Simulated scan of single mutants.
Amino acid sequence: MILFKAFKHEDIFEDKFGSSLADLFKFYQDVKKCKDKISGSEEIFYLGFREFIRLRKSNSNSPEFIMQSTKRSMRIVLSKRINELSTDLGFLATIASISPYIGLFGTVYGIMNTFISLGGGTNHASLTMMAPGIAEALVATGIGLFTAIPAMMAYNYFSTQVSKLENSYSIFLEEFYSILYRLVMLAQEQ
């Protein structure tokens, strides 16, 4: 659900941003009004532009410093958002990786019980005697796989979605950085 909202929010922001390039200062003021509800590229824009404005006022003679600091602040936001989006992925990866081993442990335990029950003084083993223990072992294996396979599929799906969002945020960051760089260079020429 969080990823779905993030993709939807990203699409809406891209449309707004694209139509607001003529007046970034006005767009910044509009975003500032709802700054508690922003995320993703919108947050990268807001915090990056806020840093850009602040540094331009105090360091107008140092465009490189302005741009480096602005980019650093945008990268920090990007990293925080990606960390938030991928928080639960480790849990899925853990389930996917340990479930087969838990199933294997159950398999070994079931087979051991079968052999222990056969060692109780019986001279011959029959399928009837071995079937319950082997059935337990197979059920344990099945449960392990039944848990691991969907968890691995979910992990792969969600990690791919997080990577797509990270790529989208990074592309926006670079495009916005280029716009800000042009603004700084134009100010230097004047």
Rank of each mutant, 00 (worst) to 15 (best):
I2E: 14
I2G: 04
I2K: 12
L3M: 04
F4T: 03
F4A: 06
F4Y: 06
K5Q: 08
K5N: 10
A6S: 11
F7E: 11
F7P: 00
K8Q: 10
K8F: 09
H9M: 09
H9S: 12
H9Y: 07
H9D: 14
H9P: 01
E10I: 00
E10P: 02
E10S: 09
E10F: 08
E10A: 04
E10N: 10
D11T: 09
D11K: 11
D11A: 14
D11R: 10
I12P: 01
I12Q: 11
I12W: 02
F13C: 05
E14D: 14
E14S: 11
E14R: 07
D15Q: 13
K16N: 14
K16G: 05
K16C: 12
K16E: 15
K16A: 13
F17W: 13
F17Y: 15
F17E: 03
F17N: 03
F17P: 01
F17G: 01
G18S: 13
G18P: 01
G18F: 07
G18H: 07
S19Y: 11
S19T: 11
S20I: 07
S20Y: 08
S20K: 07
L21N: 05
A22N: 14
A22V: 09
A22C: 06
A22F: 11
A22M: 12
D23I: 04
D23E: 12
D23G: 08
D23L: 09
L24R: 05
F25P: 10
F25T: 14
F25W: 10
K26M: 14
F27P: 03
F27H: 04
F27I: 04
F27W: 05
Y28C: 07
Y28W: 10
Q29A: 15
D30K: 11
D30R: 07
D30Q: 14
D30G: 04
V31Q: 11
V31I: 15
V31W: 06
K32W: 08
K33C: 05
K33M: 13
K33A: 15
C34Q: 13
C34K: 12
C34T: 12
C34A: 13
K35V: 08
D36F: 08
K37S: 13
K37H: 11
K37D: 13
K37V: 01
I38T: 10
I38G: 00
S39D: 12
S39Q: 15
S41V: 03
E42D: 05
E42H: 06
E43W: 02
E43A: 10
I44F: 08
I44T: 02
I44P: 02
I44G: 04
F45C: 10
F45A: 10
Y46C: 06
Y46N: 03
L47T: 01
L47C: 03
L47Y: 10
G48Q: 03
G48P: 02
G48E: 03
F49Y: 14
F49N: 04
F49E: 06
F49I: 03
R50Y: 12
R50P: 00
R50D: 15
E51Q: 14
E51S: 13
E51T: 13
E51A: 11
F52W: 09
I53A: 05
I53G: 03
R54L: 12
R54T: 07
R54V: 02
L55F: 03
L55Q: 05
L55I: 00
L55A: 02
L55H: 00
